[in-house]
Design a protein around this nucleic acid. Structure first.
Length: 399
DNA sequence: GGGCAATACG
DNA sequence: CGTA
DNA sequence: GCCC
C-alpha cells in the first residue's frame, strides 16, 4: 500500500496540506492512504458575480471557441494513398497507445470533431457519440498531420462518413456542421445546462423544452431536487468557461489495513471537515445527508462513495469525491477512478474480449468455463501486467 | 446485424 | 430511469 | 457511426 501511495501524483495545493495536517493529528486513522489522479491545480478567480453568470443566456456566453484554430496549410487531397504514419498503434483499443492531453497535430480537426461528438451526445445518440470518441482518440494519438482523407480512413475508428468530413476539412479548413454549432442557441444552451452537477442530457433538454434559457430562469421556475438546486447555486464557483480548460475534480481513494477502522470513517471525517469549515454547510442540509448516514452502516464491505464539495482555505471550491475501499480493491480502484472515461471503457473492453478478464473498479475476474476466479490487483502496474498490455502513465490516458 | 464498460445510488 |  |  505504501508503494501505491508513493507512486501516485499528489497535487500541491493548500487543502492537501491541510489534509496532511489533519491526518497527522489524528492517530485513529494513521494508515489512510490518499490517492490522486493527476489533476491540474488551476483555479478560476471569478470576476463575475454568481448572479451574472446564472443570468447568462446563449448570446452572452463567452464564445464557443475552437480549442485550436491553427493556420492549417491546406493539404492537397488529390494525391492518394499516403501510408499510415509509422509508429502509430492502429487499433480499436485506445488503451494500447499513449494519448496526450493536448495533441501536437490535427488540433483544429479534433476541435471540430469534439463539437460534433458533443452534439450527438446532447441529442441523445450515445452510440454515434461513442464513434466520434473513438475517432477523436485515434486522431489525438496520431503522430503527424493527416495529409488526406485516404490516409485518415486507414485509421481504425475513422470510417467512411468521417473520412468524408475530414476530406472537406482538408479542402476548406472547416466542417460546416461543426462550425455552425458554435453559434447555435440550442446547442450552447444545452451545453450550459448539462454542465450543472446533477444534470444530464435528459434534464437539460427538458429545461430547454420548458422554455428556459438561463440557469436563473430554471432556478426561479422549475421544481428542482435539492441536489440540482445546489448544483446550480454552486455553478458559478465551478464555472470554468473563461481561460480554463482543465477541470479540477479530485478523487480521494481511502483504504485501511484495518477495515474495522473504516466503519463510520467517512462520517467522522466529514464531521471534522465541517468543524474546520472546509465544507459548504448547505450541502449537508440537502440530499447528501442521506448518503452520509447511509454510509454509517457497517455495510459489509465493497464500495462506499459519496460526492462532496469542499471549500479550502483559499476560498476556492472544488468537487471532491471520497471513496472508501477494501485494501484488496485498492489497485483496481485507483485504475478505475483515474480515467479517462474512454480509457476505462477501452481497457475493460480489451481485457474481456482479448483475455477473458472481467474488470471493474472493485476487482478483476478471470472467466473460464462458466466460473469466475478473482484476482487481487495490488497496483495499476499490476493490472496492466495481468492484462498483458504496456503500462501507460496516467497523463497519457487522455483517450 | 450485434455490440459498443460497468456499477452504485437516489 | 438518470447521473456520476 | 464504426468494427468485426
Amino acid at each position: 500500500m505504501d508503494d501505491i501511495a508513493k507512486s501516485v501524483p499528489v497535487i500541491d495545493i493548500q487543502w492537501i496540506r491541510d489534509w496532511k495536517k489533519l491526518r497527522s493529528s489524528d492517530s485513529d486513522h494513521d494508515d489512510f492512504v490518499p490517492s490522486l489522479p493527476p489533476v491540474m491545480a488551476t483555479s478560476a478567480i471569478s470576476s463575475s458575480s454568481g448572479a451574472e453568470i446564472l443570468n447568462r443566456r446563449f448570446k452572452d456566453l463567452p464564445p464557443e471557441e475552437l480549442q485550436f484554430d491553427d493556420e492549417i496549410a491546406r493539404r492537397r487531397e488529390a494525391e492518394a494513398n499516403v501510408d499510415i504514419a509509422p509508429g502509430f498503434i492502429n487499433s480499436k483499443y485506445e488503451c494500447l497507445r499513449p494519448t496526450p492531453y493536448e495533441p501536437k497535430y490535427n488540433r483544429k480537426l479534433v476541435s471540430l470533431l469534439l463539437l460534433l461528438e458533443r452534439k450527438r451526445h446532447l441529442d441523445n445518440e450515445p452510440k454515434r457519440s461513442l464513434s466520434y470518441r473513438h475517432a477523436i482518440s485515434a486522431i489525438k494519438a496520431y503522430p503527424r498531420e493527416i495529409q488526406s482523407s485516404k490516409e485518415a480512413e486507414k485509421i481504425i475508428g475513422v470510417g467512411k462518413k468521417m473520412a468524408e468530413k475530414i476530406k472537406v476539412f482538408l479542402h476548406t479548413g472547416t466542417i460546416e456542421e461543426a462550425d455552425k454549432l458554435r453559434y447555435d442557441e440550442q446547442f450552447r444552451t444545452l451545453s450550459l445546462f448539462s454542465k450543472v452537477f446533477g444534470v444530464g442530457v435528459t434534464t437539460a433538454r427538458l429545461w430547454w423544452d420548458m422554455g428556459y434559457r438561463t440557469l436563473q430562469e430554471v432556478l426561479a421556475s422549475a421544481k428542482l431536487t435539492a441536489a440540482v438546486q445546489l448544483g446550480i447555486e454552486l455553478f458559478p464557483d465551478f464555472d470554468q468557461s473563461r481561460g480554463k480548460t482543465k477541470n479540477g475534480d479530485v478523487d480521494l481513494i481511502i483504504s485501511s489495513k484495518r477495515p474495522d477502522n473504516m466503519k463510520g470513517f467517512l462520517n467522522k471525517l466529514t464531521r471534522r471537515l465541517i468543524e474546520k469549515n472546509y465544507l459548504k454547510h448547505k450541502l449537508w442540509n440537502s440530499t447528501e445527508i442521506k448518503k452520509i448516514s447511509h454510509l454509517e452502516r457497517p455495510s459489509a464491505g465493497a464500495r462506499q462513495v459519496f460526492d462532496s464539495f469542499e471549500k479550502p482555505s483559499t476560498g476556492i471550491r472544488r468537487q471532491v469525491d471520497l471513496i472508501c475501499v477494501q485494501p484488496d480493491e485498492l489497485g483496481t480502484a485507483i485504475l478505475g477512478w483515474t480515467g479517462s472515461k474512454q480509457f476505462e471503457r477501452s481497457i475493460r473492453d480489451y481485457a474481456k474480449k482479448e483475455k477473458n478478464l472481467l474488470l471493474n473498479s472493485q476487482a478483476m475476474h478471470l472467466e473460464q468455463n462458466g466460473k469466475r476466479k478473482k484476482y487481487v490487483v495490488h497496483s495499476e502496474k499490476d493490472a496492466f501486467d495481468m492484462i498483458g498490455i504496456p503500462y501507460l502513465e496516467p497523463e497519457l490516458r487522455n483517450c
